[in-house]
Amino acid sequence: MKLDYHQHLEYGSYELDYAQGFLETAKERGLVEIGFSEHTHTFVEFEHFYYDDLILDDSFIGSFQQKWLKKNKFKYTVDDYFAFMEACREHFPVKTGIEVCNFQDQQAVGELLGKYDFDYIIGSVHFLRGWAYDSSEIKAEWDRRDLRGIYEQYTEEAEALCAAGHYDMLGHPFNIRLYQYFPDFDVTPYLQRVVEAMRRADMVVDVNTGTLYRYPVKEISPYGDFMRLAHEAGLPVTINSDAHRPTDSGAYHDMAVEYVRDFGYTETVRFTKRKREIVPLS
């Protein structure tokens, strides 16, 4: 079954004409169902988490992130989102998801998420000690950091997300390869720690083509070493595009299916109201 649960409307608006582009592309690529998983920075309810957690001083990182928080952020309520998803469902099968950043106050995050009837919730590591490591505008910060320290911090943040118990999927695991900073040390212990944390939390792997077509690394996340461990541990997978533009809905889906088949996967997960249905990969 062709599904794609990781798509974003943030570059446009909650207007049907804009969303229709995602739906039409999904149809053309043979998807039978999609899910939007808006970033939490879309919603006013989550604004304070960002101001609590991000570096917002006058440093190189802080100066950029101050501007980032004021650009196209916190423009809707979660109720606005649910209402718009209902409108979209009149035109195509659409599930309502959300992608939540690795905020430090996970208890408060859980209380907020619990107020809404999502079909699935993605937890993603987007910040390392308040640094938005995937932002190209501050990519130079990578040259100032110890890569072993980045792997440790990423792993700790992923473990904390999993342990919080709020999430159905871990978004794009180990996308810290996105700018081609490859380690010269054995990262297997870090991969194993995240796989084990996901196993304990009964979470699904977001096999994400976004790093293939949006970032210099040009590979599907998670990369092969993680995928081997994930399959050995029995972690389920979903195949997702991380589309931020209508033309990217379902992007490289067939390639990603073949990718996970190489590791032994034959099934994927369909979500409805946080309940799972195991369906064949296609």
Rank of each mutant, 00 (worst) to 15 (best):
E137P: 12
I122T: 13
D80R: 02
A83N: 15
Y133F: 07
L69K: 11
Y76P: 14
E137G: 03
Q66F: 15
I98M: 11
D143T: 05
R89C: 04
F64K: 10
E86F: 00
I55E: 01
S136W: 05
V109Y: 03
V94N: 03
V78I: 11
S63C: 06
D58F: 06
D134W: 04
S135C: 06
H91T: 14
E141F: 06
H41E: 05
V125D: 04
G97H: 01
Y51S: 02
Q107C: 01
F36S: 09
S124V: 01
G35A: 08
E99Q: 04
L54A: 10
E45K: 05
V78C: 09
I138C: 07
F127M: 12
V125T: 09
S59F: 07
I122H: 01
F60M: 04
V32D: 15
Q66C: 11
Y76E: 06
Q106I: 09
D105K: 02
I122N: 03
G62H: 10
Y50F: 15
E38T: 15
G97F: 00
E47Y: 15
L69C: 12
S124P: 05
F92K: 01
I61L: 08
D119H: 07
R145H: 08
W131A: 06
R144P: 03
K70T: 08
F36W: 02
R145G: 15
F64T: 14
H41S: 05
R89V: 14
D79R: 12
R144T: 11
W68N: 09
Y76V: 05
F92D: 01
S37G: 12
G35K: 10
S59H: 08
D57C: 14
L112Y: 09
D52Y: 14
G35V: 10
I55R: 14
R145I: 12
K67H: 12
G130Q: 10
F84P: 05
K139W: 00
E99C: 09
F64N: 14
F84E: 00
L69H: 09
G62W: 07
E38N: 15
D79N: 04
R144I: 00
E90N: 04
P93D: 00
F46N: 10
G110R: 06
G35Y: 02
H41C: 11
R145A: 12
W68K: 13
F46P: 11
Q104V: 12
K115S: 15
R145K: 13
A87K: 08
H39Q: 06
E86T: 13
F103R: 07
Y50R: 04
H48N: 10
Q65N: 13
L113T: 13
S63K: 15
K73G: 08
I138T: 12
R89N: 07
D58Q: 03
F103G: 06
Y50K: 10
G97Y: 00
T96I: 07
G97N: 04
R144H: 09
E99S: 06
D58C: 08
G114L: 14
F103M: 02
D117N: 14
E38H: 15
S135L: 07
G97W: 00
S63D: 11
N102M: 01
E137H: 04
W142D: 04
